[in-house]
Design a protein around this nucleic acid. Structure first.
Lengths: 304, 304
DNA sequence: CCGACGATGTAGCGTCGCTGCATGGACGTC
DNA sequence: GACGTCCATGCAGCGACGCTACATCGTCGG
């Protein structure tokens, strides 16, 4: 019962295939397949089954993968217990964030972490579809993700994934300053009928919020453009090519744009840190995560 | 961070040395030493330190060994989660017991287990000093041990050792049937002044109880013989070579001996099953342990 | 129907951990 | 105080295990 093979099994589950898991683990697909075969032989029952040209875990494999999480956590706790003696809560932590979250949180995080000393943070921006966020935790230690306010929990929340809330960010309606509504201090969904929208790509977190706003106005929204990058969307709004939903703390930098709070509709997104349970046990990771939480509190406190 | 090396570290702690650990793990001392060296190198701090010609764990090593227990438990849970699918709560379980406990519990345990099917129980009798019982759990899955009634807990109880109470057995005073006290239905400590005792060897569980009885009588007990085997002691009592303290359920088979309950002194021993926390997770072991608990209840219920 | 992708076997190789033996230090004994 | 014994540790040699590279088979899209 090799822990490396158990780790591999978990990765195959989260990545959804041998090839993807191999890429994450820096192995060849053959090695991954052999590990699964060995594990299955030892278990006495098949852990995976072919489905199409891919594969998925059997019930037994799923149960074992769940148990493998606890094994990984225990091993990481062991490492942490040693780190308490060497005094070394040092090392490098990989942090990723979606575009606007990265812009908001990563710079202050880096300055705070620099004061810690010995802790190196490697950042990357990862903008992926809603349901692809959890899988990122295999390549990155801390994943800053977002989801619509009342939306579904993350897949496998609880035992498979640790979720740390960072902040709740309201989504405001961004209009050009020459827009008739620009003088209002807040707008209702009904005020927005007939507007052209600049939305995000289908499957991305903010998309469902726009649908909710549209439902409040009674008409289907006319989506003219799909832009994932908020700063681009903001520039397009300023140029009068449509209106958009922009997160309050992130947007609002552009002088030609006014952000109007939405009344009557609860529009917002939750920004959370996603970690694998075993990664969450690492002392360095905990330190960085604490700083990230502090940064989030700072950012919301100053702006709200 | 190899789990085999962690297992080795635990064994070195419980067995108190490299050589003893190597014997238990079926390895050469050299291999054990190399594993410790590798682990220590990876940890960055020494995990062991020489003391005399042996060694002991450092504080860091002790902490890591504690964490290693959780790792082993998690791994064993993973195995158990698989066993739930193969339906195989089968295999062999090694059970050891001290002399009198073995005589009382093992025969009925074996008959009950035979009915289970697929479970093989290997018995052995292990009579060791009080503080040597926990270390037996490295060689044997279930260790039936005993300790004086109000005595100290087992070393490392809690996280390092799982303790399952089986029964409490009163210790009676065994006298030959021609003895002046033989007619009494119970005796007090004061009645026993001046008697010659047949005791157990120093360091064995019942020894401290005799000291307690002696303290009640006010005089130091005159110990004529030291016999660990109760059936031998019983025969010696019958032949008039002294009196003894015998466990009620175990002793009393000899026609020439009368067992007299002790009044005023709480004399007894606790019989308990000792398991390593990881072993306790194995499904086969749990099944056998359940049967053992049932046997203990049966035995005391019939005799009390 | 063909091309591409994904998973799985097989040969070959490197590496890691074990055994066997030799060394050095500590305790008990004569 | 010297010797023998026991224990832990270092080093050479060997075996085994797991990886890469390559080939094969099945499946899905064009």
């Amino acid at each position: 019962m090799d822990v490396r093979a158990l780790e591999t099994l978990r990765t195959v589950r989260t990545q959804g295939g041998v090839a993807a898991a191999a890429a994450v683990l820096h192995l060849t697909p053959s090695a991954v397949s052999q590990q699964l075969a060995a594990l299955s032989r030892e278990a006495g029952v098949p852990l995976t089954e072919r489905v199409g040209r891919g594969l998925r875990l059997t019930a037994a494999g799923d149960a074992l993968a769940d148990a493998a999480v606890d094994v990984a956590v225990a091993v990481e706790r062991a490492r942490a217990s040693l780190a308490a003696f060497t005094g070394a809560a040092e090392g490098t932590v990989r942090v990723s964030a979606f575009q606007s979250g990265a812009r908001l949180l990563l710079p202050p995080l880096l300055t705070r972490v620099r004061a810690l000393g010995g802790v190196r943070v490697e950042c990357s921006d990862e903008d992926v579809a809603q349901d692809a966020f959890p899988a990122l935790t295999d390549r990155v230690d801390v994943v800053v993700a977002h989801r619509p306010d009342g939306g579904a929990e993350w897949a496998g929340d609880g035992s498979r994934l640790r979720v740390v809330p960072l902040l709740r960010e309201p989504l405001d309606v961004a209009v050009p300053r020459e827009h008739p509504l620009a003088g209002r201090d807040r707008v209702r969904a009904g005020d927005l009928v007939g507007e052209e929208w600049i939305a995000v790509r289908e499957g991305f977190p903010v998309a469902t919020v726009l649908a909710a706003v549209a439902a409040g106005s009674g008409a289907a929204p006319r989506i003219a453009h799909r832009i994932n990058d908020f700063s681009i969307a903001e520039a397009m709004v300023a140029a009068g090519h449509g209106i958009s939903l922009l997160p309050r703390f992130t947007g609002g930098g552009h002088p030609g744009v006014r952000l109007l709070p939405l009344a009557g509709v609860r529009a917002g997104r939750r920004v959370e840190a996603l970690l694998r349970p075993d990664t969450a046990e690492r002392l360095v990771v905990r330190r960085v995560l604490d700083e990230l939480v502090a940064v989030a509190a700072e950012v919301t406190g100053a702006s709200a």
